[in-house]
C-alpha cells in the first residue's frame, strides 16, 4: 500500500513536470483562426524596376516623369504576415516572429521563412509594409532582430531615434535630375501615426492572392512563393513623384504619404515553386 501511494505520487510529479515543459515550448498565441502546425513556406521578395530586374548602382531606369535614375539602396519592412487557405481560413504568423527587413543589398534577407504553419493549400497572403503602431511604441524588450534600433542611419539603418519611429521604406539613388550637389535622391518613408501627437499614418496593408495557384504545405512540401516588388511604383502612382521636384522626401507628411500611397501597390504575385525542401 505504501508503495502504491509512492507510485501515485510519482506519476503525479511526472504529469506535472511534463505539462510544465509543454507550457514552455509552445509560444504560439493569439491566432483567431487556424492553429499552428509543423509546415513551412517561404516568401521570396524579388525586387524589379518595371520589366527589368533591379540591380543596385549599375543599371539606369526611367520613371514615369521621364527621369533617369539608378538605385543604391532599397530597404523595406514586411510585418504582420497572414496566410489565406483555400478553405477560407487564415493563419496569422505569431507576431513576435513576424517582422522582416528586406534589403536589396542582402539576398538572404529577401527570403522570408514562415514556420509552424498548419498544413493545407494556401491561396494568398496579407502583410504590412512597415511596422504596426503598437510595436512602434513598445518597450525595448520587444525590439529584437529586424527591429533592433542600433543600425547606423547613414548606413542602411531603419530607425529614426529623434522621433522614435521606423523608416518603413528607404529608397536612395542617383539621378541627373536630382539637382542636389551629388545628384542623390533620398526617400525615407516612415510615420506610424504618432505617439502623443497625431502624425500621418503610412502603415500600408498588402493583400495578394496567388492567382488561383496553390502553395501546398505538407510534411513533404515546402513551397516558395515569389512576390515581385516594383520600385517604379514608388514614383508612379496616384500622385506621381518627380525626382527633380523632390529629391528628398522624409519628414513632409504630404509628400511622404504620397510616396506610401504609391508604393502600397508595388507588390504582385510572381509564381509558386511547389517544393524547395530538397534544395
Amino acid at each position: 500500500m505504501k508503495k502504491l501511494i509512492y507510485l501515485s505520487l510519482l506519476s503525479f510529479i511526472c504529469a506535472v513536470s511534463i505539462v510544465a515543459c509543454n507550457d514552455d515550448s509552445n509560444d504560439v498565441t493569439d491566432n483567431p483562426d487556424l492553429v499552428a502546425g509543423t509546415g513551412k513556406l517561404t516568401l521570396k521578395f524579388d525586387n524589379v524596376s518595371g520589366t527589368q530586374d533591379l540591380k543596385l548602382d549599375s543599371t539606369k531606369y526611367t520613371n514615369s516623369s521621364g527621369e533617369d535614375f539608378t538605385v543604391s539602396t532599397l530597404n523595406y519592412f514586411i510585418s504582420n504576415i497572414k496566410l489565406v487557405r483555400d478553405d477560407g481560413k487564415t493563419y496569422t504568423i505569431p507576431q513576435d516572429s513576424s517582422y522582416f527587413l528586406i534589403r536589396e543589398s542582402d539576398p538572404k534577407s529577401q527570403i522570408v521563412t514562415l514556420k509552424q504553419l498548419p498544413e493545407g493549400n494556401y491561396t494568398g497572403v496579407e502583410y504590412i509594409i512597415g511596422v504596426d503602431s503598437l510595436r512602434s511604441v513598445s518597450g525595448i524588450d520587444k525590439r529584437v532582430g529586424a527591429l533592433d534600433p542600433s543600425g547606423d542611419p547613414e548606413d542602411g539603418g531603419m530607425y529614426w531615434a529623434w522621433s522614435s519611429g521606423y523608416i518603413f521604406l528607404k529608397l536612395e539613388g542617383v539621378s541627373a535630375k536630382a539637382g542636389s550637389a551629388n545628384n542623390k535622391f533620398y526617400y525615407h518613408i516612415g510615420f506610424f501615426g504618432g505617439y502623443d501627437s497625431k502624425t500621418v499614418n503610412n502603415i500600408k496593408t498588402v493583400k495578394l492572392d496567388f492567382g488561383g495557384n496553390k502553395a501546398i504545405v505538407s510534411s513533404e512540401n515546402v513551397p516558395q512563393v515569389r512576390l515581385i516588388g516594383d520600385v517604379q511604383k514608388v514614383f508612379n502612382g496616384p500622385v506621381p513623384i518627380s525626382i527633380a521636384k523632390n529629391p528628398s522626401i522624409m519628414f513632409d507628411f504630404t509628400l511622404s504619404s504620397n510616396a506610401a500611397n504609391n508604393y502600397k501597390s508595388m507588390f504582385s504575385f510572381g509564381e509558386i515553386t511547389p517544393n524547395i525542401s530538397a534544395q
Binding site: 511604441v137 518597450g139 542600433s150 543600425g151 542611419p153 530607425y159 531615434a161 529623434w162 522621433s163 522614435s164
Partner: peptide, 29 residues
C-alpha cells in the same frame, strides 16, 4: 529632449550616440 521626440528612457541614448553632430556613432558599432 527639447522637442519631445522620445517617450521612453530606454530609447534616449540612441539619439546622442547616432546624432552625426554629437557622438556620430552607430550603437551597433
Amino acid at each position: 529632449f527639447w522637442d519631445g521626440g522620445v517617450h521612453d528612457l530606454d530609447f534616449v541614448p540612441f539619439n546622442p550616440v547616432q546624432n552625426p553632430v554629437e557622438m556620430g556613432e552607430s550603437v551597433n558599432n
